[in-house]
Design a protein around this nucleic acid. Sequence first.
DNA 1: GGCCGTATAAACAGGC
DNA 2: CGCCTGTTTATACGGC
Length: 601
Amino acid sequence: MMQESGPETKSNGSAIPNGAGSGNHLLECGSLREGRANGETPSGEIGAADLAHIQQQQALQVARQLLLQQQQVSGLKSPKRNDKQPALQPQQQQVAATQQLAFQQQLLQMQQLQQQHLLSLQRQGLLTIQPGQPALPLQPLAQGMIPAELQQLWKEVTGSHPAEETPSSNHSSLDLSSSCVTTSSAPSKTSLIMNPHASTNGQLAAVHTPKRESLSHEDHPHSHPLYGHGVCKWPGCEAVCEDFQSFLKHLNNEHALDDRSTAQCRVQMQVVQQLELQLAKDKERLQAMMTHLHVKSTEPKATPQPLNLVSSVTLSKTASEASPQSLPHTPTTPTTPITPVTQGPSVITTTSMHNVGPIRRRYSDKYNVPISSADIAQNQEFYKNAEVRPPFTYASLIRQAILESPEKQLTLNEIYNWFTRMFAYFRRNAATWKNAVRHNLSLHKCFVRVENVKGAVWTVDEVEFQKRRPQKISGNPSLIKNIQSSHAYCTPLNAALQASMAENSIPLYTTASMGNPTLGNLASAMREELNGAMEHTNSNESDSSPGRSPMQAMHPVHVKEEPLDPDENEGPLSLVTTANHSPDFDHDRDYEDEPVNEDME
DNA sequence: GGCCGTATAAACAGGC
DNA sequence: CGCCTGTTTATACGGC
């Protein structure tokens, strides 16, 4: 079938055309100070800033329109919203002025939070800000939100203060979500994808709420996202409340469901939306950066619009291989209908790496693992969709496949299926890698062939597996260091990012991107791979056995001589769990892609 | 430079 | 006969 003859791959050796190449490539790639070599970024970054600004302006306009509509609906006659509310009582004016200040304060706070987030990213080396773009993402926000326009917006907000509790006002406030979303600033799919939470207004409060409070809210009944340090944290309020009860009273009295509150909420939504947008932008850049570091020969076209590439380039170039899985949303992730994460790397790499052939990839690649830093969050989807060779040895993958099966045993065909199911890379050149799989099965003692009723199945002799290459990398500080750095990106990345973002009151984002239940699987796989290779840093007591082999840590012991114990629990890794639900690949179907579990049961 | 682990390719055999 | 499975050999590469 789609077999690509090997000779050329062999002869090419060091000059592998597809860019993945041997370990050297990755090493060279590792010295990527010029990171953004292939011009994928410049336009993108400039565009990011501009786009953010434009969208911000749009957001303001939208907010204003909303306010207008709202006021019209609520029967506010005053055509002079811009006036200093002559109808307002002096006291009210004072309140309004105070709130305006507080509002601006809040905006500043939001910007600071964002800045903190970005700074934290920079500190982690995950994000670089171009010299030419001082505080790049913040600029638009700071410029756009603070000045006159926002003040004007605020006036409009407070202008509707008189608050007649009309039924219509209720209506409008209840329509918050839909109106905001449908008229939202960035109308493109970009905004929808990158700003997935723009529509989740019900959670906006949580978005804006410092994590500490959110958490404590659950634990302490007297905690409230809008209440902290004896102060009402309603935007622009800061009223002092002695205790929680008084706060509740204050909340009900002062922030009831009226036009003002609604409008404030909308403004808040806009603010959050902008932050999310900016964050998404930054994340996109981050992914592009990481992908670039991983993919040596990044094609410039890959970056500018990764979101579109998913459906356009990917399908056009690798339609036959792509299958539904190339789409950003894995059908196996029902809990995350919005996994914008997948766009970045999967697309980029898919397009730029799709031509990766059966290249000779050194085992040592794994230890350089520049790859993992880019993959952590996306890993599973990443490898499923992008034809990037996974940084695992065949033996490790085979073992993983077997151990993931309910009975820790697979037929050869099932192993094949696992490969193709989990890695887009193995949907091509079947003859090559299948041969390699067979070769590995036969070669390594750790793979035990067991005659079954239905035929032969392969199992893993964990002891044997752990005996393999025990001396690897230990004693090479540079390598270890390298791995550690990669590991530092890999494992703690999620936590670090989440923490960072949580600190900056952007929990939802992290929840969507990092909290994807399916994403952690391969991440843990790679983590374990690294852990195993590093023979230390294993917090989970793992194995003190001599083995540093990639994924062994996931299955510290079992499977000795008789690995066919059906009572064995499935491994910590559950890649196959999600993969089982994925549609089979249309191509490369020379093997029945029956679900492994089904077959094994 | 040798050894080791790995990848790739290929030849071969046996079974269906 | 063709395909699949499994074994074995050869070669190449990179790290130690």
